[in-house]
């Protein structure tokens, strides 16, 4: 039976060893949590940048607004396209005025008649941008099509690298955490080896021998993951108070859903706690197995 009280009492008896083990495991879990956050932030940034990339189709002056809106509706029905925004000549002038508000002479020289109406087209997948651009370019009324091809392809490459690197490095840190637990418990078991042997010789069952070791492993991993979670949350609170990501973070692979930084770190904390329990149990079971072989 798991007994955290005994595990805590054992920890108190060996303060130096226990403290150093807790420190190592807390740092490992904290690094894991920070790394999860970094991976999420990079993916969130990519998702945001992906949203900003778009194809812009500019229309001739003789192509009426009605026909542009018809084309907009047609494009909106395309599964590959997530959003189509119509920018009229007047709206284009407003945008131009806002962007160049520090250049009054330039603004005065421009009128709505000069600026073309346009459709800003966002695709669901970044790789569809070029295809959509090529399909729209020859359409009636389209004067020109623009999208930043180089930027799109670089984003795509970076996205792929970060996805793969994220998985690999997360797996590596999980392995490091597991190893830290195994080493911690091996140290404990080595010190207690004779005691365990004697317990077996006087008739202790496997469960009786195992229970304190598993309790110890779970206690260490759970305690260190709790410490790491608290530190993560503290960091999130401080960042929020400083106004970092005050509009939340874009959740990758969703359609614009945003999450608060504290809530995100709470979720990571739950992941760390679950990892702590799993790693603590698996690590202690595997290390104690040696002493159950007669």
């Amino acid at each position: 039976m798991i007994n955290f009280k005994n595990a805590y009492e054992t920890m108190k008896k060996e303060r130096v060893l226990s403290f150093s083990n807790l420190l190592v495991m807390t740092i490992t879990f904290l690094v894991l949590g920070v790394f999860l956050l970094v991976v999420f932030l990079s993916q969130s940034t990519l998702a945001y940048l992906e949203q900003q990339t778009q194809v812009t189709a500019f229309f001739r002056d003789d192509f009426t607004e009605e026909r542009i809106l018809q084309l907009q509706a047609e494009l909106q029905a395309d599964e590959r396209i997530s959003n189509v925004e119509y920018i009229s000549k007047e709206e284009a002038l407003q945008i131009f005025t806002e962007i160049n508000k520090d250049e009054p002479l330039l603004v005065e020289s421009i009128s709505a008649n000069i600026l073309p109406a346009s459709l800003k087209i966002q695709t669901r997948k970044i790789e569809d941008l070029k295809i959509i651009a090529e399909e729209i370019a020859p359409r009636e009324g389209v004067e020109g099509v623009k999208f930043f091809e180089d930027v799109v392809s670089q984003f795509q490459k970076l996205a792929n690298v970060l996805y793969i690197a994220g998985f690999i490095l997360t797996a590596v840190f999980l392995f490091i955490s597991y190893s830290a637990i195994v080493i911690t418990l091996r140290t404990y078991i080595n010190r207690k080896g004779t005691e365990l042997e004697i317990l077996k010789l006087v008739g202790a069952s496997n469960d009786y021998v195992q229970a304190p070791i598993i309790s110890q492993g779970l206690f260490f991993s759970l305690t260190s993951s709790i410490f790491a979670t608290v530190l993560l949350l503290l960091g999130a609170v401080v960042a929020t108070l400083l106004g970092v990501f005050d509009s939340g973070l874009l959740v990758p692979f969703t359609t614009g859903f945003r999450i608060n930084l504290i809530a995100l770190n709470l979720i990571f904390g739950i992941i760390l706690l679950a990892s702590g329990i799993l790693l603590g149990y698996l690590g202690s079971k595997s290390t104690v197995k040696k002493y159950l072989n007669y």
């Binding site: 077996k200 010789l201 006087v202 496997n206 159950l292």
Partner: peptide
């Protein structure tokens, strides 16, 4: 069985 050896030892 090995996992029940404690019964003998008692």
């Amino acid at each position: 069985p090995k996992e029940m050896v404690h019964v003998v030892r008692r």
